[in-house]
Nucleic acid binder design. Structure first.
Lengths: 243, 243
DNA sequence: TCATGTCAAGAGCAGTGCTCTCAATTGTTT
DNA sequence: AAACAATTGAGAGCACTGCTCTTGACATGA
C-alpha cells in the first residue's frame, strides 16, 4: 500500500499481476453489462460474482466495494463517451467549426440513446450515498466540455464567429469566474461568449436527458431526431457558429 | 375493488375511512422526508414503517408496494413544484410576460435547490424497474411546461414578442408534431417559436440539473445565481420575450 | 523445498421487498 | 347488548442485497 496510485498505472509484469488485471477487467466488463441493462442503482456485486462464476466474497479481492466498482464504471463510461465524441469531431475538417460542434452534439446524443443507463450514471441523479472521487473522475469527465470549448476557442481565434456576438457580462462575481476559466484553460473567447458556451453546454445535455429519461411525453414528439437537429442549430447560433 | 378509482377520489365518510386516509397521509409524509434526505433509490418501506411505529408488513395494508409509494411521492413532488411555479408566476403582472417567464425559471431552480433528491426523482435518471403510471402522473407532471407555454402563447397573442422571430420550421415530421401540439392545447404560436420553446424548456431543466446534480466542477462556478440569471436572459431572448 | 502471498469458499450479520397466517381490534348490524 | 364481519397489526419466513471474517487450498518466488 506504499504507492498504490503509482502501481495502478504501471503495466502488470508478473503473471500474477496480469491474471489479476484480467480479472478486474472481467469484473468491469460484466459490471458494464449489468449497468447497461438494469441501471446504476440495480448494480449488484453478487450478480457480477455469479456471472463471473465465483462466490460473492471473492470479488472483494479485486474491488474494494460497490462504490469502487461504480467509480471504475464511471471512468469507463466517461472515456467511452469521450472517445465517441473525439472520433466524431475529428471526422470533420478542422476549419468546419460549426460542423465539429454539431458532430459533438450528435455524438453525445447517439451515445446517450445507445447507452441510456450509463448516460444516467454520468448525468442523471446522483447515486445515493455515492460520491465520485474527483481525483479519478474529473479528467475523463471533462473531456466533452473541453472539446466543445476547444471548438469554440478555435473558431473565435480564427475570426470565424458571427459578429452578432453576445452582450458582454458586466463586471461581477460571474465575470471573475469566467476570467478564472479563461486563464486556466488558456482561452481567448470573451466573457459573453464563454457564458453562452456554458448555456449551450447545459442545454445540450438538457435536451439529451429529456429524450433519454423519457421526460417528453410518450407521444408528444415522434420526430425527435429532427427536433434535436433544430435545437442543435439554435445552439450553434447562440455561440455565433452559425449565422 | 369494483370501482377503486371512484372511491379513491371521494372524501372519506366513515371514521374507518378517515383513519385510513390519515395513515396513508402519514406514510406519504414520512416517505417524503426520507426521500428528501436520502434520495429515491434509498427509499425503504421498512424504514417508513419504523418511523410510523409499526411493523413493516402493516404498511402494505395501505400502500400496495414500493412503486406505489414512489408514485404517490412523485405526484406529491410534481404538485409542490407546480404550486411553487404558479405562485411565483402569478405574483407578476399578467402583462409582464418576460417577468413571468423568469419567475417560472427562478421558481424551478429555487425548488430544485431546496429539494435536490425530490427534483432528482422527477427529472433525473429513472428509478430502475419503476415505470411511472402515465395516467396518474401526466397531469401534475405537465403543469410547469403548460404554464410556460401559456406565458409564451399569451405574449404572442398580445403581439409583444420581438419581431426577430425564429425561422420557420420546414414542413416535415417535426412540423406535424408541432401542429398536433398546437391543436391539442389550442395555441396560436407558430412552429419556429414552439420549437424554440421546447429548447428553452429542456435548457432550463438542463441548467438546473447541472447545478443540482453537481455536474459543474466543485469550484468552476461560484456565482451560480448570476450564471443562471444570464442563462435565463438568453433563453428569454430565444423565444422573443426580451430584445 | 519451503515460506510467503494470494486466492476462493463459506458462514454470518444486517439490511431490503414482499407474502402469508393468525389473532386482536374495530365498526356495523341485528 | 350481542353477534358478525371487515379491517388491522404482528410475526414468521423467503429471497435478495452489501460486506466481513475465517478457513483451507493453491501458486509463486526464493
Amino acid at each position: 500500500m506504499s504507492d498504490a496510485a503509482a502501481e495502478a498505472e504501471t503495466t502488470p509484469r508478473t503473471p500474477r499481476e496480469r491474471a489479476r488485471a484480467q480479472t478486474i477487467e472481467d469484473i468491469v466488463r460484466l459490471g458494464r453489462e449489468h449497468l447497461a441493462t438494469q441501471g446504476a442503482a440495480a448494480l449488484s456485486l453478487r450478480a457480477v460474482a455469479r456471472d463471473l462464476g465465483v462466490v460473492s466474497s471473492a470479488v472483494y479481492r479485486y474491488v474494494a466495494n460497490r462504490d469502487e466498482l461504480l467509480t471504475l464504471l464511471l471512468v469507463d463510461a466517461y472515456d467511452e463517451l469521450g472517445d465517441a465524441v473525439d472520433l466524431a469531431v475529428n471526422a470533420m475538417p478542422p476549419k468546419d467549426h460549426a460542423g465539429r460542434f454539431k458532430a459533438l452534439g450528435r455524438a453525445v446524443r447517439d451515445w446517450a440513446l445507445r447507452e441510456p443507463a450509463r448516460y444516467g450514471l454520468l448525468f442523471g441523479s446522483p447515486v445515493p450515498g455515492y460520491q465520485a472521487p474527483a481525483g479519478r473522475t474529473s479528467t475523463p469527465g471533462t473531456r466533452v466540455i473541453y472539446s466543445m470549448i476547444g471548438i469554440l476557442d478555435a473558431a473565435y481565434r480564427a475570426g470565424e464567429l458571427t459578429t452578432a456576438a453576445p452582450a458582454a457580462v458586466a463586471p461581477s462575481a460571474l465575470s471573475a469566474d469566467l476570467e478564472a476559466i479563461r486563464d486556466e484553460l488558456g482561452l481567448a473567447v470573451p466573457d459573453g461568449l464563454l457564458a453562452n458556451g456554458a448555456l449551450v453546454w447545459t442545454s445540450l445535455f438538457g435536451t439529451v436527458s429529456f429524450e433519454v429519461f423519457g421526460q417528453y411525453g410518450a407521444d408528444t414528439f415522434s420526430a425527435r431526431g429532427e427536433l434535436f437537429e433544430h435545437h442543435l442549430a439554435v445552439l450553434a447560433k447562440l455561440v455565433g457558429l452559425e449565422a
